[in-house]
């Protein structure tokens, strides 16, 4: 019974998220937004790379593929972290509907998960557009036939669970912070962007940075994405010695650990917010 109710909560929360993302905007604006934003994000790096290549810098097509794939899949990290915490901020501060949703007879945690599902769909659309743009316009070679699809799907699912878990932990913190969700999302996303070998090999970082990168699951997730796709893999000497099996094992263990940690943080944030009467505070000055 509880499972059925939770699934129904998730389904309608996902529907609500989708309506808020797509149906509340003009269709033309939504399409432009969905296409232009991810492509522009990638083109910033492409222009940076091309300028340095023209100046005779140390550029290499393998580094370009490494950067392009990493940046495309990093959209999941940035957008999911952003959206999971933004749900709290948006419902509480802008629409001021959180007090009503919160007392509704369903699991609020499941509601947040449901709202995230629509963002995964939209982000997937953005990632595909970026990859297609890379293949047809920038000449990034993605051999579809050579991709290890079963492993790719497994890695994607585990990775997305891990990212959602991080998002939920941040959502728990958002319960008790003022209007800083945006800075927090951006900043925590920045930690992953800097340390997880997204646009440059981890080996470029100082020693302590490499050590830190090696404890972050997203580092292994992105590395395995590249390896299963056969694009941009092997560029990073810092991860060259880590086998596929070891990476998968680290990814699984760290995802489980982070998920437990995230649920605890979420519950703690929820508890503190209720105790201090912060559930429906407004700080959007």
């Amino acid at each position: 019974m509880a499972i059925k109710q939770n699934l129904r909560t998730m389904k309608w929360a996902a529907w609500l998220g989708w309506q808020m993302e797509s149906n509340w905007a003009d269709p033309f604006l939504f399409i432009v937004y969905s296409v232009a934003k991810p492509i522009a994000g990638s083109l910033i790096l492409v222009v940076m790379y091309t300028i340095i290549a023209q100046l005779g810098g140390d550029t290499d097509p393998a580094l370009f593929s490494f950067m392009y794939i990493g940046n495309a899949f990093f959209m999941y990290v940035m957008l999911l972290l952003w959206h999971v915490t933004w749900v709290i901020h948006d419902d509480r501060e802008h629409f001021q509907t959180m007090r009503y949703i919160y007392i509704a007879p369903f699991n609020y945690f499941i509601y947040i998960l449901g709202r995230t599902i629509s963002n995964i769909v939209i982000t997937t659309f953005g990632v595909i557009i970026t990859l297609v743009f890379g293949v047809f316009v920038l000449g990034v070679d993605i051999p579809l036939g050579a991709i290890n699809w079963p492993l790719f799907v497994i890695v994607m699912v585990i990775g997305l669970i891990g990212i959602m878990a991080f998002g939920l932990a941040l959502a728990g913190i958002s319960f008790i912070t003022a209007k800083h969700s945006m800075g927090m999302n951006e900043g925590i996303g920045g930690i992953f962007y800097l340390f997880c070998g997204v646009i440059f090999p981890v080996s470029v970082l100082p020693g302590w940075g490499i050590a830190f990168a090696k404890i972050l699951p997203t580092t292994y997730w992105l590395d395995m994405i590249r390896r299963t796709m056969g694009v941009g893999a092997g560029v990073d000497p810092a991860l060259a010695g880590v086998s596929m099996t070891s990476s998968l094992l680290i990814l699984c263990i760290s995802t489980v650990a982070i998920s437990i940690f995230a649920v605890l943080i979420f519950k703690l944030g929820d508890y503190i917010a209720r105790s201090k009467g912060l559930i429906d505070m407004t700080t959007a000055y």
């Binding site: 790096l45 810098g57 800083h180 800097l194």
Partner: peptide, 23 residues
């Protein structure tokens, strides 16, 4: 949130240039 965290994303672009030995 507004001082320490934003530096991280900017640092990623710095290291991207560093990886290419940019001037």
């Amino acid at each position: 949130f507004e001082t320490f965290l934003p530096i991280l994303a900017v640092s990623a672009y710095v290291y991207f240039y560093t990886a290419m030995n940019a001037p």
